[in-house]
Computed example of a mutant assay.
Amino acid sequence: MWHRPDAFRRSLRLAVALVLALPLLPERVEAAPQRVVSLNLCTDQLAMLLAAPGQLRSVSWLAADPRSSVMADAARGYPLNRGGAEEIFALRPDLVLASTWTRRETVFLLRRLGVEVVELAPAQRLDDIAPAIREMAALLGREAEGEGIARAFTERLSALRSAQTGRTAAIWEAGGYTSGAATLSHEVLSAAGLRNLAAYEGLAGGGYLPLERLVAAQPDLILSSAPWPGASRAEDLLRHPALVALMADTAGLMLREADWVCGLPQTLEAIEDVKDAGTR
């Protein structure tokens, strides 16, 4: 039986319209992970900042140490892990958050066992922090929350940035350890309007600045950290008579180390502390 031409044309037009509409149909939305485990101090804190209740199942033990974590109190509410592959696999995660610094054997074994592991690079610049917040939010299916936090961070950072004052600051910790160019610490000093002595001396990344060079440079501000429990020969250098004499005539700031370790919204507190100390 033949179809009437007008009915056939209507059917053909409908079929064509449906084909053209296919690209407009919404894509299937991936379900957000529900059993997230973090292995790294920096991913720990970003995840705690952004995760929905019950979504994050474990963070690393370092996240509960107030000397290195700005979210130590929150971290104590989670099971803590030591980052071993067997330990993590037993938690049955559907997403593992790691750093590019996480032990290679752990990442390799978890992936061999079929666990999704995402490695996030640590922030080296202040301008890396907002994208890192958005990246973590996307992984957790919390884009709206991440966007709000990232925008607030960017706005406050813009308000805090200062013009260069011509004053010099030196980070000098146990053993003479310091941070040169291409580090988050360098970026904090620059945002506070100060010149980083280590970078001026040609150091890039972390390294050591001899006490003799520190004393000869006569910086306007010296930043150090409180000694850790126990004793070490590296910390004896912080009590050297030459440094004590220099500190007597130089502004100093005792670092809250946790504010400087990871690229987080709380990094802005470090900038404020340095700005306040640099104007004394």
Rank of each mutant, 00 (worst) to 15 (best):
P23Y: 05
L268I: 05
I129S: 01
R213S: 09
D259K: 15
F8E: 12
P265M: 06
P53Q: 12
V261N: 02
R82G: 12
I171V: 12
T165M: 08
R13S: 12
L189Q: 03
L50D: 00
R256G: 09
L95E: 02
V215W: 08
V70D: 02
R280C: 12
R256N: 13
A123G: 05
D73R: 12
L197K: 00
V274R: 00
T43D: 09
A199F: 03
T154D: 11
A7N: 12
A7E: 13
A15R: 10
R156W: 04
R10P: 03
A245L: 08
L46A: 01
L20D: 07
S185Q: 11
R104N: 15
S38W: 05
L237Y: 10
A216L: 15
L264S: 02
G202N: 06
A98D: 04
L184D: 03
G207K: 02
E147C: 09
L95D: 00
D259Q: 12
L237E: 10
L214C: 08
Q164F: 12
A181S: 15
L95V: 07
T154V: 13
R76C: 10
G77N: 11
H3V: 13
A277E: 06
V117N: 00
A15F: 09
R195G: 00
L25S: 13
D6Q: 13
A123Y: 01
V244K: 14
A51M: 03
A72R: 03
R213K: 14
L110H: 00
G77D: 10
L56F: 07
R104L: 15
Q45V: 10
V37I: 10
T250K: 07
R111W: 10
L109M: 12
I129T: 02
S69T: 09
L223Q: 03
L24F: 14
S190F: 03
G141M: 04
P5T: 09
H240P: 11
K275R: 14
D65A: 09
R125P: 00
L157I: 05
G180R: 01
L95N: 02
L109C: 08
A138H: 07
A150S: 06
A226K: 15
R76Y: 11
T102L: 07
V96P: 02
G278C: 11
V118A: 08
S190V: 04
A121F: 11
G148D: 06
A47L: 11
L238D: 04
E135T: 14
P265I: 06
L95K: 03
L91K: 07
S162L: 14
G193C: 04
A137W: 01
T279G: 14
I129Q: 04
T154F: 10
D220S: 05
L264H: 00
